[in-house]
Design a binder for these strands. Structure first.
Length: 231
DNA sequence: GCGACAG
DNA sequence: ATCTTGTCGC
């Protein structure tokens, strides 16, 4: 049986991929789509983790990296370009960046078990940041890793790698401020889809070596920016 | 009305 | 995100 709810989700997933959309409509879509996000724990530990980031040499350029979690080795890299169709509006970042990210994801031969995206997941005004947006469209476990807060507050975590405090807003826990490197500002982690916050934090820490950002996102950032002043 | 505001 | 060199600190 195909329920009406399945059809609504299918319809939402299509609309979330619009390359041109009115901000008011975009906000309505986020509010509806937010209800389909799942924060249930992952049952199988991820063997591969994908990382995505963008640069804007001219058009929008997305870099996708797939890393084997047991060895931390990059097993695939992809670069995709696409014209920019939306301006940057706080809270609506996904409508500007998701299209190229999805194109890069589709180009990957080795589909990762979990994906990490630059930006927030549930730590968002409508609880539907870019990590939720991409995670819902792909129906794939996703994690948001941001370098600054969009909403909510968090106490400064301790200075040891692994120390973290919740990002809260009222009685809600939206994510976690995680110390990935002593002496460096924390990273803000939140659930995108199909994973628990605890597992998201755990995976971000596992994928972090000697830098502030976890390897998936860090390598994707380097790859996306590499040829900025070249080809 | 006055700020705040992922990338 | 992007424009950009040197420089302060661990």
């Amino acid at each position: 049986m195909i329920s009406s709810k399945d059809k609504e989700l299918e319809d939402l997933i299509n609309k979330l991929q619009s390359t041109h959309i009115d901000p008011k409509e975009a906000i309505r879509l986020q509010i509806k789509a937010s209800r389909y996000i799942t924060e249930s724990p992952l049952d199988t530990p991820p063997a591969t983790v994908g990382g995505f980031d963008l640069s804007f040499p001219n058009n929008a350029r997305a870099a996708a990296i797939v890393i084997e979690s047991s060895t931390m080795e990059t097993i695939e890299e992809i670069l995709e370009d696409m014209p920019v169709t939306m301006p940057y509006i706080p809270g609506l970042l996904a409508f500007r960046e998701a299209p190229v990210i999805l194109r890069a994801y589709n180009s990957l031969k080795a589909k990762p078990d979990v994906i990490m995206i630059d930006g927030h997941g549930r730590a968002h005004p409508r609880r539907f940041g870019i990590a939720c947006h991409v995670g819902l469209i792909l129906r794939k476990p996703s994690i948001g890793v941001a370098k600054s807060l969009l909403i909510g507050n968090a106490e400064e975590p301790g200075d040891n790698k692994g120390d973290w405090n919740p990002i809260t807003l009222g009685n809600e826990v939206l994510g976690a401020a995680v110390r990935t490197k002593p002496g460096a500002k924390p990273v803000y982690v939140s659930v995108g889809n199909l994973i628990s916050l605890e597992q998201a934090v755990e995976l971000v820490l596992k994928m972090t070596t000697k830098y502030r950002l976890p390897e998936p996102t860090r390598r994707a950032h380097m790859l996306a920016s590499r040829y900025k002043n070249t080809r």
